[in-house]
Design a protein around this nucleic acid. Sequence first.
DNA 1: CCGAATTTGTTCGTATGTATC
DNA 2: AGATACATACGAACAAATTCG
Lengths: 267, 267
Amino acid sequence: MNYLSQKVLKLRDRLMTKHKTEKRIKKTVKLDKTSGISLWRQIADRLRADMIDLADETGRLPPEPELASLFKVNRLTLRSAVKALVEEGLLSRQQGKGTYIQQKRRLKYPISRRTRFSEGLNNQADQRSVTILDYQQEKALPIICEKLNLSEDAHVVRVETLSIADKMPIVRSTSWFCAKRFKNIGQLIKKHQSVTHAFRLCGVDDYVRQSTEVEARHANEADSRDLKLAPGGLILMTEVINTEINGTVIQYSRSRMAAERITLLIR
Amino acid sequence: MNYLSQKVLKLRDRLMTKHKTEKRIKKTVKLDKTSGISLWRQIADRLRADMIDLADETGRLPPEPELASLFKVNRLTLRSAVKALVEEGLLSRQQGKGTYIQQKRRLKYPISRRTRFSEGLNNQADQRSVTILDYQQEKALPIICEKLNLSEDAHVVRVETLSIADKMPIVRSTSWFCAKRFKNIGQLIKKHQSVTHAFRLCGVDDYVRQSTEVEARHANEADSRDLKLAPGGLILMTEVINTEINGTVIQYSRSRMAAERITLLIR
DNA sequence: CCGAATTTGTTCGTATGTATC
DNA sequence: AGATACATACGAACAAATTCG
């Protein structure tokens, strides 16, 4: 028995055991063969989630034959899964040595009543930037009017942004502002690279989040492209309403965040 | 040209166009054939995300041949995708009539400094319950000690719960409490079906959330089983620290929520 | 430096599932 | 329903790099 067998057996035990009160019936780690998702991808997803528990102190994973038998698949199938994770940059392999976890930390993305994107990620990433992809004045859709407390025929400014940290895209946002009051906010945000700054130039000295909604979804094609997600990637979708201190709604925005690179921190 | 062609063409336009400033190079809605995910499942995932945009006011989707050509696949392939969504309960089909969206509402799950599970879901679900699957006193793992501000060799009470609304599992939680101070909290929670009530009996009249962290992940096998998720399902993972009013940490818990049935509402 | 053990890398052949026409 | 093309999965065997006594 080699040096990791015990550890793997222990993990398998944990994976197979629901609660101590439950009988241990299952003999295998079940994988669904008719789900339309190939075995290697199912294993890649599971490995992505659990690799930290499988690795030893040095970040080394158990050898391929051991992992293969843990998942009850052929070694080549396991290798396909590992290959996908290597291409994602999550693992590295070296012939004769082993397979290692490439540390990839999730950014902590704080959400509080007073968070601004740039402040929140301070000291967590070396390089940060917000790219304004597009801005446009247009007739507001009914749902947007409702969120911004505007009349039916109001116009709004829509601003599309992409936030980047350490060269990886993190958040893809769409924001709406009342066009009457914030006529030039598109140019201002683009010029100063800051919503807070742009607001200040429009006479809004301070603002807070009124509400935030969070959902998890599968990335659609646009998300995958904008956020450079691996196929089958996940996004955290947030819907935010910002108000002035007196309660007037001034911004409604929807963001799609690369779930694999983000932990939301709610305070 | 039938009644929906225009709408579908418009959507295809939207799907294929990134921003107005970008050239329209792409001629097809790209589907990756070597991603380890079969075409029909990729289409099922995309349909799940976008079906509201595709349907008309009555919730009816375009006819199959039209959808098939939108995704550039064979009609049989499209039918496999629709079949999967019918089995998930998201769509219904009737020969000669069409394919319809089955409305499935997400529960709003509020997170604030003073939220309790049972209160939060009030008036949103007819039946709610919290099942205590297991509780156990045990030696605390280092990570748990750290979160609870306990010494290295402390013991904790671990409580496993499953929260259900309208007969569907919503949240699977694991909570840890200091065993010294909350020796009987397992029994108390089980008896009164309420953490708040159990705390009160232990002399904690009031408590607040100190921090909440949220991540999105692929469901692993245990999640899928506990939360009755469809294959490839998503979970929202939250990590919560609760403190007394004076700041003493009294509870650390990790929850895995069925992402498809939940919108987190942060106030 | 040698050789054995360990571990990843590669190549056969075969069977099955997926997608198209 | 049948024919075709390709990706997926398996088993077995061998090659190449690394580690260690």
